[in-house]
Design a binder for these strands. Structure first.
Lengths: 242, 242
DNA sequence: CTGGATGGAGAGCACCGCTCTCGTTTTCTC
DNA sequence: GAGAAAACGAGAGCGGTGCTCTCCATCCAG
C-alpha cells in the first residue's frame, strides 16, 4: 500500500511536470524556468528541488513526454487507416508530424532543435525518440511486404561497407517488426531501401524544421503546398503505390 | 577624416564582435553572455551597451557574420573546382557545409538550430542566409545549362498552383544568375527541378542537423559514410553527371 | 576656451539555477 | 505509543544573467 506521503509526492511530481509542460507551451525550452514553475504551483523554488534534481532532469522528463506525445499522435493517425493504403498512410504520418510541430513549436524545438547549452541527452530519451520515425519505417516495410515486385530495378548498388554501416537501422527495423508481429521479419530490407527511408526521414525533419525556424520564407509562398509536394516525391522515391 | 574617437569606436566595436565570436566557439548561442564579453575585454558590462544595443543585436551581428563565413567557405571550395565537373562540385559543397558545421557546432546551431527564445530574425540576416544554399543552386543550374538532354523524362508533372508557389525560389535563382553573369538567364528552370533543388537542400540540412544534434547515433555507425552516400543519391536525383 | 556630446565605472533591479539551514510534519521502528 | 529517522516547506544566500540609471572624466566642435 501507499502512504499519504507517497501519494502526495507522486501527485506533486506530476503537477510539476504538468506545469512545466504548460510553461513550455509558451516560452521555449531555453527560457523554461524552474522558479516560474514553483511560483505557478504556489511554492518556493527550493521546494521543487525535493522532487526534481535539476533543471536538466526536468527537461529530460519533458523530452520523453513530448517524444511520446508526438509518437502517439502519429501512431494513432496511422492506426486509423487501412494497412494496405500505404501512400495515404505516408501522407498522413508526415502531415501529422508537421502539424504537431506547428501546434507545439517549442516542444518541437526541444526535441529536434539545437540541444540546450550544457544538456546531454541521456539514455532514457533514445527509446521514445524512435517512435515518430518508427511509424514512417513501418509504412515502408508494409509496402515492401505487400508487393515485392520491382524492388531491385531502381535501387543503387551498395557496397558491403555501407551494409555494415546501416547495421543499427536494420536491427531497429527487425526488432520493431518482431515487437509488433511477434514473428521474425520474413526478410531483410535491401540496403538501398534502408538508405531511402533514412533519407526520407531526414528530408521530412529538414522540411519541418526549415518551415518552423523560418528558413523557407523567401523561397516558398505556401508552405502547406510545398510540404505536400515534397511528401509526394518522397513517397515516389519509396515506391509507395497509390 | 576620422577623429580618434571614431577610430576607437570602430575598433572597439569589432573587438566586441570578435570576442563574442570567440565565446560562441565555446559555449553555444543561448549561454553567450554579454557580461562575459565585457570581462574578456576588461571593461564593465554597462560600457558594452555604448556599442551594442542589446544581446539580441549582438546575436544578429554574429548570425550574419557566421552566414558569411559559411557562405565564403563553400563558395571558395566551389570556385577551386572546374565549372563543368558538377558532380564533384556538388560533393565538395555538401561536404564543406557538413565539415564547417562539425568544426563550428555552436555557430551552426545559431544559424540553423532553434531560434533563441525571444529572438526574431531581422531583415539583415536573410541576405547572407542565402549564400550557402546559393552555391548548391548554382551547381545544379550549371549542370542544367550544360546538357539539356533527358530533363523531362524523370520529372513529376506539376500544376500551375505549384508553379506560383515557387515564385520566390525561381526569382532568387534568376537574380543570382543575373548577378553572377550580368545577363538574364537563358531559360527558367523547370518547376520540377526547382522542387528537386529545394528538396535536396532540405535533405542536406536535415542530415547535418541530425548528425550534429545526435539523432543518428543508434542508426548509423559511420556518419561520414552515410553522408557521402546521401549526397551521391541527391546528385543522382539532380541529374548531375559524373 | 567653453559647452555639449561621448564613453567608462559603479550601483542597482529583477531574474535565473542551485545550496544550505532550520523548523515542522510524517513515517518507521522498537 | 514513544522516540528516532526520514521527508518536506520556507527562507536566506551565492554567483550569475540582461539591462538601466547616475555620475564623472574625456574629447571635439563651435
Amino acid at each position: 500500500m501507499s502512504t499519504a506521503r507517497e501519494r502526495a509526492r507522486a501527485e506533486l511530481t506530476t503537477d510539476i511536470l504538468r506545469t512545466a509542460r504548460a510553461q513550455l507551451g509558451q516560452v521555449g525550452p531555453a527560457s523554461l524556468s524552474l522558479r516560474a514553475v514553483a511560483r505557478d504551483l504556489g511554492m518556493v523554488s527550493s521546494a521543487v528541488y525535493r522532487y526534481v534534481a535539476s533543471r536538466d532532469e526536468l527537461l529530460t522528463a519533458l523530452i520523453v513526454q513530448c517524444y511520446d506525445e508526438l509518437g502517439a499522435t502519429v501512431e494513432e493517425a496511422d492506426a486509423a487507416l487501412p494497412r494496405l493504403e500505404v501512400r495515404r498512410r505516408w501522407r498522413t504520418a508526415c502531415g501529422r508530424i508537421r502539424s504537431w510541430a506547428a501546434e507545439h513549436p517549442h516542444e518541437y524545438a526541444l526535441l529536434y532543435g539545437s540541444p540546450v547549452p550544457g544538456y546531454q541527452a541521456p539514455q532514457a530519451t533514445i527509446g521514445p525518440a524512435t517512435r515518430p520515425a518508427g511509424v514512417l519505417i513501418r509504412i515502408v516495410v508494409d509496402a515492401q511486404l505487400g508487393e515485392p515486385a520491382t524492388r531491385i530495378a531502381t535501387g543503387r548498388t551498395m557496397t558491403a561497407e555501407h551494409h555494415d554501416n546501416l547495421a543499427g537501422a536494420r536491427a531497429f527495423i527487425a526488432e520493431d517488426h518482431r515487437q509488433l508481429t511477434g514473428t521474425a521479419p520474413p526478410c531483410e530490407l535491401a540496403d538501398d531501401m534502408v538508405m531511402r527511408i533514412l533519407s526520407s526521414w531526414t528530408t521530412v525533419f529538414g522540411a519541418v524544421s526549415f518551415e518552423l525556424f523560418g528558413h523557407l520564407v523567401g523561397s516558398v509562398v505556401d508552405t502547406d503546398l510545398f510540404f505536400g509536394e515534397l511528401v509526394e516525391r518522397l513517397a515516389d522515391d519509396l515506391d509507395l503505390p497509390g
